[in-house]
Amino acid sequence: MVSWTQLADLAAAVCILLGALLALIAAIGVVRLPDLLTRMHAATKPQVLGTVLVMTGVALRLRDPGVVGMLALIVLLQMATSVVSSHMVGRASFRAGQVRHDLLVVDELSDGPSHEEPRGAP
């Protein structure tokens, strides 16, 4: 007879393993991908889902309502901050010219009519 705690433990183990695998893939991506902008993709997307899965696994294993709030907070802040940081790093690298243009099929930011936004525009 399998009790529900054993089932929850099994689900937790699967979640944590999958999350760790995604974090590993993200790390491999940061090393393998050719330029900074492409690396930002690897550093944000699989890593966010990996964090969500690890937190779900931890919540299933601990089964403590007091911890769930903090785990939800971790996921929310992870989503909010990874967006901002990837944008800031991507923007800075594009403005500094650190872009492999040979990898781009379409580049509407460099090819479009030059548009000077006043500095410090709101």
């Binding site: 491999i28 991506g29 991908l33 997307k45 699989p46 969500v52 990898l103 099929v105 379409v106 930011l109």
Partner: peptide, 25 residues
């Protein structure tokens, strides 16, 4: 979509052929 995007990017990381990108307005 978050799940799908993560799997897509993971696939791009793991496959061998070089990746092409675009900057879209």
């Amino acid at each position: 979509d978050v799940v799908r995007a993560s799997i897509e990017v993971a696939g791009v990381v793991l496959r061998r052929r070089p990746v092409r990108n675009a900057v879209v307005a």
